[in-house]
Amino acid sequence: MFKSVYNWIDERLDVTPLWRDVADHEVPEHVNPAHHFSAFVYCFGGLTFFITVIQILSGMFLTMYYVPDIINAYASVDYLQHKVPFGSIVRGMHHWGASLVIVMMFLHTLRVFFTGSYKAPREMNWVVGMLIFFIMLGLGFTGYLLPWDNKAYFATKVGIQIADSVPYIGEYIKVFLQGGDIVGATTLTRFFAIHVFFLPGALLALLAAHFLMIRKQGIAGPL
C-alpha cells in the first residue's frame, strides 16, 4: 500500500534521490555513539537543531498571547506566565531554550573546530555555520527586550549604547534599532519584527544551506 503510494509519487516527482539524501544516507561508524561512546560529541549539531525546533514551536505559542506594545507587552507576558494554564512552562521553554541553544551551538562549534572538520572542502559550511551563530546572538539580543521589564529595558539601552559607540556608522545603527531617539514604543515593535520575522527567516535559509551542504559533502571522515 505505502509502496504503491510511494511509487506513484516517485514516478511523478522522482523523489528517490531526495529521499536518499534526506533519510536513507549512511551514518558512518566514527560518528555513531553506539560504536564509540566518545562520538557523542557529534550529537551537538543535531541537539542544536532540536532546541531550535523547540524555540520555533514555543515561540509560535507565545505570540498567541504576546502584544508588542509598551502598554500591554509586560501585562501580556505577566498574564501568560501567571494566568494561562502551562503558560509558565511554554515561556520557560522559550526562555531556557534560548540559553541552551547557545550552549549547544557553542559545543557544536568547538567540536567542528577541534576535529578540523571545517577544512577543505567544507569551508563554506563553516562560514554559514558562523553566520547562524551570529543570527542566534541577534535573536537572543532582540528577544531579551520583549518582556519589557526593567531588566529587558536597561540591557537593551546598554546594548544600543554600545552599538552607538561604533565609529562613523554607530549613530545609524542606533537609530535603526531604536526607530527614534529613545528606547521606546518603536524600539519594541522593531525588535519584535526583527525577532519574529527577519532573523528567523534568515535563520531558516541559512539552516537549509547548512543541511544541504552537509548532505552534499557528507560528514568529515575519521581523524
Binding site: Y74, Q81, S88, H94, W96, W148, D149, Y153, I182
Partner: peptide, 10 residues
C-alpha cells in the same frame, strides 16, 4: 520558572 521583574520604568 522563567524570570519576570517589574514593568520597564525609564
Amino acid at each position: 520558572p522563567p524570570p519576570l521583574g517589574y514593568p520597564a520604568d525609564p
